[in-house]
Amino acid sequence: MDILPQLIVNIIIAGAIYALVALGFNLIYGATKFFNLAHGVIAAVGGYAVFYFAKTLGWNVYLAVIIGVLLAGIAGYGLDKFVYLPLRKRKASNMVLLVASLGAFTAIQAVIAILFTSQFKTLSYSVGTQRIFEIFDGVITQTQLIILMSVALITAGLILLLYKTRFGKAVRAMSDDEEVAKIVGINTNRIIGRIFFIGSAIAGLAGILVGFDTGIEPTMGLGLLLKGVIASIIGGVGNIYGGVMGAFLLGFVENFGIWKISGEWKDAIAFALLIVFLLFRPKGIMNK
């Protein structure tokens, strides 16, 4: 059986998942200029919120998804409000913020493990049997199709938000020069708070969809974060288009790389790609 069609489907799905993480990560990086490592664990917050509301409490799964996305957004907003904002007010460097985000990542991951145990869990049981679609000779599940549609919708939504609204203009201005943005009357801390909410809600959705696709565990955030960050760096960190392009390039290289060899090589290939970009095009595909 020819595996090429399935390989192509796998590339698209992997790229879409990485893109979901990279979109929120890039949005936050663009506004704050620091690597928010806690972004990964926020994805886990979304996944576990759906697990709790849909599977433990038995609520309607769609309602649980909405709550999960909102909770992830609120968690991100809260992190900014109570951790990053006080640090920014104390003129903390981006390195300090990065370390703080690593601390937040570890702490939230630990809390999730305490509340839900470290055991792997599935979400898909609660939505019944997954429908499977055949595209040419490859198969794609209903969840994976939703992941693809989500990426398309969120990318389009973010582009509209950033380039077609006055809020977006303020975000882009702040991304260019935060001090001048303040001088022209933009309350940058408020904007950053909203950006954290939006970016984290997207991360939460990523965690939920990955949860439906493959399952959840407290450490799921790290893997998602690493791939999202690699996608952001090779696409052009802070750049919305770049993040999506980087994600699909990463999915392509990873999955083609393991065509003839063991799947264990996937991460090694991903990081090799990162190193190649850091050496030869450190600003990524989109940033000059």
Binding site: L161, T165, R166, F167, K169, A170, R172, A173, S175, D176, D177, E179, V180, A181, V184, G185, I186, N187, R194
Partner: peptide
């Protein structure tokens, strides 16, 4: 100090941005 990644017209329009959320969004 300008907003370098923005167009000339957007550099001016940004200072005329409404400050309320809904006005800014819609």
């Amino acid at each position: 100090r300008l907003f370098n990644q923005m167009t000339v017209i957007d550099n001016i329009l940004v200072v005329l941005t409404e400050r309320n959320v809904f006005g800014a969004l819609f």
